[in-house]
Design a protein around this nucleic acid. Structure first.
Lengths: 148, 148
DNA sequence: TGGATTTCAATTGTACACAATTTAATTTTA
DNA sequence: TAAAATTAAATTGTGTACAATTGAAATCCA
């Protein structure tokens, strides 16, 4: 049986590219003592101001096993607060501290870093964004469909 | 300052899509007692028959810190062999066992799994493959460029 | 040629990912 | 309404990723 070379694997291109982008962000994020997933949590919080772990997980497609320790680290750094919802003690509400809000200004050059890394023009950017958006929706639907 | 919503982040789409594809592969890979990175190592070996850790790392963009324990696990499962190169004792040569070669037949439906997950037609597939290939090259070049 | 440098894999330590389980709280329903 | 079922986070355990260091071997070069 003939095997398909690594370079023809779409999954590998996505996997490798995603990691390379994280590498490109690393110098800036390191200087802010942030990891890439921690940055993504802040992106959501700059949008939402407040969100519980379940909804944050739904946005980032991450579960509490990943988020709980990550959120504790961000809390340790003084960037966010975690508190049980008094209306539903099962739920934990995440909110930004002043330092967490202020971090938004410090990551202003993130888009520029990505642009330099990928060397994409606006047309390619939007086209790729649309393709990936559709594929992500398909993949989520496909993975969510119960095999009953 | 206005913040960019998570959904407009190209990096997040790539990061999330890559993980969703791993999820789609999981049932099949689980049934074979393989992880996705372990599968990728086998993909390279089905191509090369034999390769050292350094070259394998260059192909997969992974370092020995990731590969050494991963390769030991594949060796434990009896899928590959690891041995010091007698010509250069610093180098470790990886080779497939019969079971490792035989695994190729068992992952035959991987492309079909991906196709069902993403619902891509051939044109979209090739177009995306080309875009991602170019971007990956750019990203690697950008990340490799020393900041001297 | 022999000490300095470089190279390769392994090791150490931190931080994700994610399946599976646990614990506590809420909701359903008999 | 009280037991059963469900839900939300946290916990546990395995396996990546990756920076930094280590140790051994090969290469450089004065």
């Amino acid at each position: 049986m003939k095997s398909i070379p690594l370079e023809r694997h779409l999954c590998f291109k996505l996997y490798a590219l995603s990691r390379q982008i994280t590498q490109a962000y690393r110098p800036l994020l390191d200087s802010l003592d942030l990891t890439y997933p921690q940055y993504l949590v802040l992106v959501v919080l700059w949008e939402e101001k407040t969100i519980n772990v379940k909804d944050l997980g739904a946005r980032l497609l991450l579960d509490s096993g990943t988020l709980t320790p990550l959120l504790k680290r961000l809390e340790q750094k003084g960037l966010l607060s975690r508190q049980r919802d008094p209306r539903d003690e099962r739920s934990v509400t995440i909110g930004l501290t002043r330092a967490g809000s202020a971090m938004k200004e410090k990551v202003a050059e993130m888009p520029e870093v990505l642009k330099n890394c990928l060397a994409l023009d606006m047309d390619q950017y939007h086209s790729l964004m649309n393709s990936l958006g559709g594929l992500l929706d398909n993949a989520i639907r496909s993975n969510t469909a119960e095999t009953n």
